[in-house]
Amino acid sequence: NNDALSPAIRRLLAEHNLDASAIKGTGVGGRLTREDVEKHLAKA
């Protein structure tokens, strides 16, 4: 659900052409954090 993404996370996802649903969020309520996105990028 993109409504739960902060603007910074949306921008980071867009810059790397990532789909938020492909990344498991570890923030409050399962929200994506910058660390989640960076860890996903490091794996790729």
Rank of each mutant, 00 (worst) to 15 (best):
S6Y: 05
G27F: 03
E35H: 10
N17H: 10
L13N: 00
E15Y: 15
V37R: 00
T33E: 03
L41F: 06
D3L: 07
P7S: 09
H16N: 07
G29Y: 04
L41V: 11
E35M: 12
R10F: 04
A4T: 13
V28T: 11
V37L: 07
R34C: 05
D19Q: 11
L32Q: 01
D36S: 01
A22L: 14
V28W: 09
G25V: 04
E15S: 13
D19F: 05
L41H: 05
A22S: 14
H16L: 07
G29T: 05
N17Q: 09
R11E: 14
H16Q: 03
L13H: 00
L32W: 06
D19L: 13
A44K: 13
A44P: 10
A20Y: 07
L13F: 05
L5S: 04
A8W: 09
D3P: 11
N17G: 15
E35Y: 13
T33P: 00
R34T: 09
A14R: 15
A44F: 15
A20P: 14
A22C: 05
L12N: 03
N1S: 14
A4W: 15
A42Y: 12
K39D: 09
L5D: 05
E38H: 10
L5E: 06
K43W: 12
L18Y: 03
L13M: 05
A4V: 12
T33R: 09
L18F: 04
S21M: 09
D36V: 01
V28M: 12
K43E: 11
S21N: 11
L12Y: 06
G27E: 02
A8L: 11
E15H: 14
N17E: 07
G30H: 03
D19I: 10
K39Y: 12
K24G: 06
R31L: 11
G29P: 02
G30D: 04
I9R: 02
A4K: 11
G25M: 03
N1A: 12
T33K: 05
L5I: 14
D3F: 02
D19W: 05
R34A: 09
A44R: 12
L12M: 10
L18E: 03
K39I: 10
H16D: 01
R10Y: 05
A4P: 13
A42I: 11
I9E: 03
H16G: 03
A4Y: 15
E38D: 08
K24W: 06
V37G: 00
I9V: 10
A4M: 14
I23H: 00
G27T: 02
A20D: 04
K24M: 12
K39V: 09
R10S: 06
S6A: 09
K43V: 10
S6C: 05
R11K: 12
N17C: 06
L32G: 00
E35D: 10
L18M: 07
K39T: 10
L32N: 00
A8I: 11
E38S: 08
N2Q: 13
A20H: 06
D19S: 12
N17M: 08
K39W: 12
R11F: 08
S21I: 07
R11Q: 14
G27I: 02
D36L: 01
A8K: 08
L13G: 00
G30M: 03
I9D: 04
N1F: 04
A4N: 14
L41K: 01
T33V: 05
P7E: 15
P7R: 10
S6I: 05
I23M: 08
D19M: 10
V28C: 00
H16M: 06
R10W: 06
L12Q: 07
E35W: 14
L5T: 06
H16T: 02
K39F: 10
A44C: 07
A14M: 09
L18A: 04
N17A: 07
T33C: 03
L32M: 06
T33G: 01
R10D: 06
N1G: 14
L18W: 02
K39S: 11
G25R: 06
A42L: 13
P7W: 05
A4Q: 14
E35Q: 13
K39N: 13
N2I: 14
S6P: 13
L32P: 04
D36T: 01
A42S: 11
S6K: 04
L12P: 01
N2Y: 04
G29H: 08
I9P: 00
L13S: 00
G25E: 01
A4H: 14
L12H: 06
N2T: 13
R34M: 15
V28D: 09
L41A: 05
L32H: 01
L18P: 00
I9T: 05
R11H: 13
S21C: 05
G29V: 04
H16S: 04
